[in-house]
């Protein structure tokens, strides 16, 4: 799991301190080496974990940084996944060309959804998005002409070019790693700059932020759109990697597992998305041996435990430890907006 702690430092790259750069470099190096150290099946799992990390970055941007609670990001994941699957299966588009359209589709739906959401208090936004998550599978089944109904769509998994001496899983892993790095690079730049400060300001002090000239309609709608786009891209990545989409895999529990990953990783952090991605990919696997229901029981307990004991998540915890034990780190982390889940209402 060397990659886990290494990747954590990706988000802090923006401030240009050495600690962060070293961290990012180590993380990328570890991620490059990783597929050669584990079985092909594990490589596939890491690919999926990466797609979850991208989805969680989208959720953290919206819920963590901007304070708009979403319990329905599984729906945007579904939009991305189905867009990619339909393009590949019905229209014969090559898989690597489906990722951007998937992001674009989710972006459009996100913006459309974000407009009414602007008028809702947090609690009611949570209620609406939870309802959206509950309604998603039924909705997908209904349009069976496009979605294949409850059977879903089976896709051919992309094969590595014959001239490359690596297996299909590794090939896919590296491609998805590139997508992940691009999204995280874009996301952390966005959040480290003007936009990030505007989002946080709107979360913590909505009235003074508006008075200071930050346009809430623009930024909050954009946050919804970009957040949905990241999660849509993640959905496409996951669909390509698993080679299968079906309505029941996009049920309310997918959305809830995103919330779990977000809270466990650290909801108002970039690095937390990576920890969260690993968490929701690997923890259920470990628990599955006990019972089918065990992963969910563990998710629930983690939600409560993190809420009471470690509200800034793993990323926040590492940051606190780093500040305590490595004084030099302080400058490196000082300006990162951290927040307990909902230290704003």
């Amino acid at each position: 799991m060397a990659a886990t702690s290494g990747l954590a430092t990706i988000p802090v790259a923006a401030s240009g301190t050495n600690w962060r750069r070293i961290g990012v470099a180590v993380a990328i190096a570890a991620a490059l080496v990783l597929p050669w150290l584990v079985s092909d099946y594990r490589v596939f799992q890491f690919t999926l974990a990466g797609s979850y990390a991208v989805a969680l970055l989208g959720l953290n941007l919206l819920t963590g940084y901007n304070g708009q609670i979403s319990l329905g990001h599984g729906a945007f994941f579904a939009i991305g996944g189905y867009t990619a699957a339909i393009l590949m299966h019905r229209l014969g588009v090559p898989y690597y060309l489906t990722i951007l359209p998937a992001g674009a589709a989710a972006f459009i739906v996100g913006v459309l959804f974000g407009l009414p959401a602007l008028r809702l208090e947090n609690l009611y936004l949570a209620l609406v998005t939870l309802s959206m998550a509950v309604a998603t599978p039924q909705f997908l089944k209904y349009f069976d002409h496009w979605t294949g109904g409850s059977q879903g769509i089976v896709l051919r998994k992309p094969a590595a070019p014959t001239w490359l001496p690596i297996g299909n899983d590794k090939w896919l892993y590296y491609q998805m790693l590139v997508v992940l790095l691009i999204v995280f690079w874009a996301g952390s730049n966005l959040l480290a700059g003007r936009t990030g400060r505007a989002l946080v300001a709107l979360r913590d002090h909505p009235i003074s932020a508006t008075v200071m000239g930050i346009n809430p309609v623009f930024y909050k709608t954009c946050a919804f759109g970009v957040s949905a786009m990241f999660t849509g891209i993640a959905g496409a990545m996951a669909a390509i990697a698993t080679g299968f989409v079906a309505p029941d895999s996009f049920n309310v529990f997918l959305s809830i597992s995103f919330l779990v990953g977000s809270v466990v990783g650290g909801i108002a952090t970039v690095a937390g998305a990576v920890f969260g991605g690993f968490f929701i990919q690997f923890i259920p696997n470990l628990a599955n041996d006990i019972s089918d229901a065990a992963p969910w029981a563990i998710y629930g307990l983690f939600l409560l435990a993190f809420m009471y004991a470690m509200p800034t998540g793993i990323a926040g915890f590492i940051r606190t430890m780093a500040v305590r034990y490595a004084p030099k780190f302080r400058t490196a982390v000082g300006e990162q907006p951290t927040s307990q889940p909902g230290s704003h209402s």
């Binding site: 819920t63 304070g67 609670i69 319990l71 208090e121 947090n122 609690l123 949570a126 529990f253 809830i256 919330l259 779990v260 809270v263 909801i267 969910w296 029981a297 998710y299 629930g300 307990l301 939600l303 409560l304 809420m307 509200p311 307990q340 889940p341 909902g342 704003h344 209402s345």
Partner: peptide
């Protein structure tokens, strides 16, 4: 609010 939401979702799960 977010803490309430997280605790309620935790209970749900």
């Amino acid at each position: 609010v977010l803490s309430h939401v997280i605790v309620f979702i935790g209970l749900l799960v």
